[in-house]
């Protein structure tokens, strides 16, 4: 039995963000964008803190990252541990397991959380990232956790020698299909149009013998009893529906920005992403945004991190100009 470990507890507990203190900047979200924003803001001398549900963000759902400069191959979790440890060296207070519900702009900006706390800051950086996009088809909600999954690394090992399906055509989908091909007996990839994953992943995929590919195909319905047993697919070319037996379906069709806590405070584009200018400023003075939640087209760790740095520098300038 192969045994490995993914230690991610820090040696010290970090300080928590205080609710009766006024911060220069508070960051909502502890993924790459939020963590790098904290590093930059703190080094500029700002009083900064992070409020987040989880430290690490979506990267924790990634098995291996091969495109973060400086690391030729690292697990998503290890990379985020490096980020977190780096930020912790600067004694940045982090409160996790907390959900921001609402932001109000008064004399200062107020952040209201689900556990009824109010945090105050002169500026806010929103780095709330995104959530997996759903297919929005019958059966998807019903069989969530009963065959329908959005986390291949979490649930993949439950399908030893099983027959599974991956939906999607980007890096995340192809990466998951490759991982799953080592566990499951057969992996089917279903995608509505053409693949858009990196060539290097496509090359690896083409070497696998237990992977079947269905392009130009959509899933119309997920069916089953106490758990899912099959899906109904629709082939766009032939116009034909087909029933395919699968034990599990992994949905990796992109992400939707998490802006529910903004409640109309800030301008969003038609995709629901926060509109920012080249420096990370939003439509609301003193509120900045970075990472997957903003309207920067490419959603990558290195891009989110860099955008976080920009937002922090912009927030610093805003404070230094005494605009608050």
């Amino acid at each position: 039995m192969a045994i490995d470990f993914s230690l991610n507890i820090g040696a010290t507990k970090s300080k928590r963000v205080e609710s009766d203190k006024l911060y220069d900047t508070l960051i909502i979200g502890g993924g790459p964008a939020g963590l790098n924003a904290a590093l930059y803001a703190k080094r500029k001398g700002l009083q900064v803190g992070i409020l987040t549900q989880k430290v690490g963000g979506q990267v924790l759902d990634t098995k291996i990252v091969e495109n973060y400069l400086g690391y030729s191959k690292i697990t998503g979790e290890e990379l985020m541990k490096e980020f977190e440890d780096h930020v912790k060296e600067y004694d940045v207070p982090i409160t996790d397991e907390i959900q921001v519900k609402k932001i109000e702009c008064k004399e200062y900006k107020e952040i209201h959380t689900a556990n009824n706390k109010i945090y105050k800051a002169k500026t806010i950086i929103i780095a709330t990232g995104s959530l997996p996009r759903m297919l929005d088809i019958p059966g998807e909600k019903e069989f969530y956790g009963k065959g329908v999954s959005y986390c291949a690394i979490c649930d993949g090992s439950l399908y030893q020698d099983g027959i599974v399906m991956v939906v999607g055509g980007g890096n995340a989908a192809i990466g998951s299909a490759i991982d799953l091909s080592r566990i499951a007996k057969k992996v089917m990839i279903v995608h509505r149009s053409k693949f858009r994953a990196d060539q290097i992943l496509m090359d690896r995929l083409s070497e696998l013998e237990n992977v079947e590919i269905y392009l130009g195909t959509v899933i119309n319905e997920i069916k089953g009893q106490s758990r899912m047993t099959h899906v109904i697919t629709f082939d766009k070319d032939s116009g034909k529906e087909k029933s395919i037996d699968v034990e599990g379906i992994f949905i990796e069709i992109g992400h939707i920005p998490r802006t529910e806590c903004l409640q109309g405070l800030i301008e969003l584009d038609d995709k629901g992403e926060i509109i920012i200018d080249a420096n990370g400023e939003t439509s609301e003075p003193g509120i900045f945004a970075a990472g997957d939640v903003a309207n920067v087209k490419y959603k990558q760790i290195i891009i989110a991190a860099a955008e976080g740095a920009k937002a922090a520098l912009s927030a610093t300038e805003y404070i230094n100009k005494g605009k608050h």
């Binding site: 993914s6 924790l60 979490c154 993949g156």
Partner: peptide, 9 residues
């Protein structure tokens, strides 16, 4: 499962 990053929490 042992490969699940959300499970320890």
């Amino acid at each position: 499962t042992l490969s699940c990053p959300h499970c320890p929490g």
